[in-house]
Design a protein around this nucleic acid. Sequence first.
DNA 1: CGCAATATTGATTTAGCTCAACAAAGGTGG
DNA 2: CCACCTTTGTTGAGCTAAATCAATATTGCG
Lengths: 212, 212
Amino acid sequence: MLGQVAVNESHCHFRPHQFLAREDEQPESIFRIDEGWACRYRLLPDGRRQITGLYLPGDICEPHWALGKRPSQPIVALTNVRAARLSSTPHGSFSAETQQACWKNLAEVIERQTNWLVTLGRKTALERLAHLLLELFERMRASGLAYGQQCAMPLTQMEIADLTGLTPVHVNRTLQTMRARGLVELQSKWLRIPDLASLRDAAALTPNEMLV
Amino acid sequence: MLGQVAVNESHCHFRPHQFLAREDEQPESIFRIDEGWACRYRLLPDGRRQITGLYLPGDICEPHWALGKRPSQPIVALTNVRAARLSSTPHGSFSAETQQACWKNLAEVIERQTNWLVTLGRKTALERLAHLLLELFERMRASGLAYGQQCAMPLTQMEIADLTGLTPVHVNRTLQTMRARGLVELQSKWLRIPDLASLRDAAALTPNEMLV
DNA sequence: CGCAATATTGATTTAGCTCAACAAAGGTGG
DNA sequence: CCACCTTTGTTGAGCTAAATCAATATTGCG
């Protein structure tokens, strides 16, 4: 959907834990993730961590760099990542096509962040996990990476904890509850959702809440 | 800073609890808040509420409507609000000046939302309140509405609770702790911050975190 | 003055956290 | 292919920050 390799693209890849960007770095380009997962996060003085955004294949990383902002948070690969470096002219501008993709992506980011404010502010552990797994599945499906009712899910429980504002231990226990209730099947980095409707229910979505 | 009344502006005002926008409405224009406070929020099926954004004087409401999105959340006045209706041409486009303001605002919104993800995901009640009061003060100061170390603070404890993901009762108790520690003075809708540095400390901000 | 909204206080409960083992998986080098 | 070691996942026991429930003050306003 985002087109093949355009004129000024170059490819690069990253291993897990490698940085795509560091704080306050000058971003001379933005990426389109072609394969693998990455995230941005913030670390509190005492070590607490919150992941504030997830980049899946097809995502632009970071759209708002195109608005002239510089990274305020590190971005790190969670798996092996293959990405296209969308190059800019010397003046820091991008192709019209790229700008288009950025804005679309930007609007999605705001929408998703808003959804997560609600989840982190008001939802229980089970609702949070349901929201997360649902969102992952829907996003993977939207980019053609879901197969039937399943998709890859490479996150560790620790990473899930840092996304949902829970502890790893509690993530573990809550996932077990969800498995016991037949809400999800989750094993060896693979997610299956037997019944989308009941998972949606469990996520306490607002009527209006579209996840992608 | 955002200029005086431009050619195609018209003014309007709202009373507390009046809607500036409802869900799924077609927004034929966007607003610049000139006076008063408003917020957008989301309601869960069982009545839990999370406020997902606050509009203070000078803010654009909503910048991303200009990106062609329609409201996915209601926006409601918290106080008396005076606003300028920034009109668009029949084609839905805005003046260059307005677009400029939108993008600046948009970048700020993303930055602030990200900060709040961290706070809602990982911070204690006292840290949340410190973050909120600090942000309010800094934003008010940035638009020239702070007087020395104080500014207006019209929110009720219930509204503060819906912003910080806490219960009103716990907000009350935590504010008392903060007052006792000399972190804030807060009475009759007026906020005073005796020592910005210690409140900043109490908010557990990341080194990088600029609030406005 | 009287009513409704807001703020405060106390007593109790609970969802989720902490601490501490231990078990499985997975990758690496021999 | 196996032995080792690190990372990830699982389980148990106890603790605590914040929620809940229930009054009672206080404030502001018509």
